[in-house]
Structure formats: C-alpha cells, structure tokens
Write a protein that binds this DNA or RNA. Sequence first.
DNA 1: GTACAAGTTCAAGTTAGCTTGAAGTCAAGC
DNA 2: GCTTGACTTCAAGCTAACTTGAACTTGTAC
Lengths: 154, 154
Amino acid sequence: MPELLTIGEVAKRSGVAASALRFYEEKGLISSERAGSGRRRYPRPVLRRIAFVVFAQRVGLTLEEIGAELAKLPPQGAPKRRDWSRLSAAWSIRIDDRIAELERLKAGLTECIGCGCLSLDRCRLANPGDGAGRAGPGPRYWLGDKRPAAPGRS
Amino acid sequence: MPELLTIGEVAKRSGVAASALRFYEEKGLISSERAGSGRRRYPRPVLRRIAFVVFAQRVGLTLEEIGAELAKLPPQGAPKRRDWSRLSAAWSIRIDDRIAELERLKAGLTECIGCGCLSLDRCRLANPGDGAGRAGPGPRYWLGDKRPAAPGRS
DNA sequence: GTACAAGTTCAAGTTAGCTTGAAGTCAAGC
DNA sequence: GCTTGACTTCAAGCTAACTTGAACTTGTAC
C-alpha cells in the first residue's frame, strides 16, 4: 500500500517549502505521480531523496551535482541501503577536502595573518600549489578549488 | 614613501579582478585615494585587506560580514599585527563550527544514510537540536545554522 | 451551493557577488 | 597630433536556488 503524500505533507515532513519541491522536480531531482486532478502525489521514498538533497547541499554540492548523483540511483522503486551507500562515497572525499581546506585556512589565520606574511605574493600558505594566474573570473589566489557558485554556503 | 598602486597592479598582485575591486570599494571593504585624473591609487596595505577578504570568503563569511569585521580595524594607516589577530579570533570559532558540521554530515553519511534511518522524522543525527519548524524559507531540518546565502560555497 | 484551503502553471522577482558593455577620459609612445 | 591601453562611471546582465504573485482549478466542510 504505497500511501501517497500531497505536496503539503511532504513540505511539512521534510521542512522543504512546496515551491522548492516543485523546483526540485523541475530540475529532475525528485518526481511525483499525479492524481486525476493534476495534483502531485508523492510516494514515501521521496522523503529520503529530499533528505539526500538537503544533506548534499550542506556538504556543498550544487543541485546540478546532486542531480547527477541521484541519477545513479535505480529509477524504479525505493533505493536500497547499498544504493545510498554507493552515492555517499563521493561525498566523503569532498567533505574531507573541505575540512582540510578549513584546517588550512585556520592555520593561515594564526600563522599567516598573525605572522604578517599575508602579503599576497609571498605566503606559501596563501598560495597553495601556485594556483595563481589561472583563467576565469573571481579571485585566483588562495582558492584551491573551483567554487560552485552558490549555496553550499560556508 | 607610500608607493601607490593602480587598480591594474592591485588586480594583478591580488588575483582579484579590477571589477571586483571596484565592487569591494563600493561595498566599503577597501578604499582608495584618487589621482588628479580621477583614477584610483591604492596604498600597499590594501593588499592585505584584500587578502583578508578572500580568506574570509573561503571560510564562508559574506561580504557584509567581512565588511563588519574590517570596520573594526583602525581606519588610519596600516593595521598592526595584533589588529589582524583580533579579527581572526571570530573566524576560528566559525571554522570550528563548520568543521564540526561537516564531521557530523560525514557521520550522517555512514550512520544515517547507511543504516537506513535517514527518514526525515526519525533520525537523531539528521535533526540536531530539534531545529525543525522554524520560520523562513529554505529547508528547515538538518540545518544547524543559518545560511548566509552565497559564496562561502561548499 | 458556497466558501475556503490547498493545489496548479507560468512569469517575474530576489540576493549575493560579481562581470560585461557602453560611452567617455587620460597619459604615454611614436 | 594621434593611437592605444588603462582607466572612469553607470546600467544592465549573469547564476544559483528559490520565492512570490497572478490567475485559475479542486477537494472538503458546512
């Protein structure tokens, strides 16, 4: 008995606004069946998909990246435990990278700014891997990785 | 001899685009003197300010927050080492918080998604401090902190 | 049968952090 | 004196991730 949920119920249970759910659907992150009236009906497993989306956003993935990850799930039925596990492997690396960067920045706080070497061309810490001079917009020094551009905020 | 730099020189040395520098100036993050011709001339200490801005962005502060921090610096002359040190104290906490969140998310990956409890209403890890039900836009569960909205990405 | 909440689509608006383009100025080199 | 490149301002555009509003339909309650 697949007990279907309305968009309002899903919004309430997930804490994600209905407008955002429609937006996610438009982006292909989630999907819904339709009642005869044209209204969305969500099978319960959508809640876990949404959970994944929110988690992944916090980790710093863009919706596009998240969509790519979710696309790897079996399209039919509720994904199994190991399906989710497979997805999460990629994150782990990403999280570790980000943590490493934050540690580095923290070190930069005390070592670099503290010691006075935070002058853009001399600091080893501020210039990891000599990344300067790359093409494209945005600050090019200190930025070890490309910046997805949105809300994996801090 | 305060050796003044043009905007092009500053852009080159900092890796920050000239357009971004003007933008930062408009936002009050940096300032410039003007040559008789109306062109910007930057005293060297601006480079350190810019460095601070870029670092802070990576940490996840918004430009507005960064501006607030920078406003605490003595307006006149080059800030001293201890001026910078004072500023950095606040970051440390922020960085630690963010690292803690990432660790938590990482744990959620294996424990939560792995074990199958990532169902939005049951997971202890996914619902820290019972933050759900708050007002405002955006996903309300799992999000331990408010999201500045922009590019402290990942 | 009538009100009201909840749902629908589509277009446009919002915020952050910039970039791009247009139109004009200025300084240096030839 | 003329071109070139670096600079100026100002307005508009861009992307991500949504939200908001308008106009309309449906389902439920009384």
